[in-house]
Computed example of a mutant assay.
Amino acid sequence: MSAYVVIDLDIENPAGFQKYVDAVTPLIEKAGARNLVVDDECLVLEGDWRPNTLVIHEFDSKEAALAFWDSPDYEPLKALRRRHSTVSVVAAQPR
Rank of each mutant, 00 (worst) to 15 (best):
Phe17Glu: 03
Arg81Thr: 05
Leu54Cys: 10
Asp60Ala: 15
Tyr4Gln: 01
Ile11Trp: 02
Pro72Tyr: 12
Lys78Asp: 09
Val87Asn: 12
Val90Asn: 01
Gln18His: 09
Ala65Leu: 06
Val37Pro: 01
Ala31Met: 05
Cys42Ala: 15
Val90Pro: 00
Val55Met: 12
Val89Thr: 14
Val44Phe: 10
Ala65Trp: 02
Asp22Gln: 10
Pro51Asp: 02
Ile11Gly: 02
Asn52Val: 11
Ile56Met: 12
Cys42His: 05
His57Val: 11
Trp69Ala: 12
Ala23Pro: 01
Arg83Asp: 15
Phe59Pro: 01
Phe17Thr: 02
Asp22Ala: 14
Ala64Pro: 03
Ala92Pro: 00
Ile56Tyr: 11
Ala3Leu: 06
Val21Pro: 00
Asp48His: 12
Arg83Lys: 14
Pro26Ser: 03
Glu63Lys: 11
Tyr20Arg: 02
Val87Lys: 09
Ser88Asp: 14
Lys62Ala: 10
Asp10Gly: 00
Arg95Lys: 10
Val38His: 05
Leu9Ser: 04
Ala92Arg: 01
Asn13Asp: 15
Pro72Trp: 13
Val89Trp: 07
Leu80Ala: 07
Glu63Gly: 02
Thr53Arg: 14
Asn13Gly: 03
Ala31Glu: 04
Ala79Pro: 02
Pro72Gln: 12
Asp60Val: 09
Asp8Leu: 04
Ala23Thr: 05
Val90His: 01
Glu41Ile: 04
Gly32Thr: 03
Arg83Thr: 12
Ala91Gly: 03
His57Trp: 15
Gly47His: 07
Lys62Asn: 06
Leu80His: 01
Ala3Glu: 01
Lys62Gly: 11
Ala23Leu: 11
Leu9Trp: 01
Gly47Tyr: 08
Arg81Ala: 14
Lys30Ala: 15
Pro94Leu: 10
Glu63Cys: 07
Val6Thr: 10
Leu9Arg: 03
Lys19Ile: 12
Leu43Trp: 13
Trp69Thr: 07
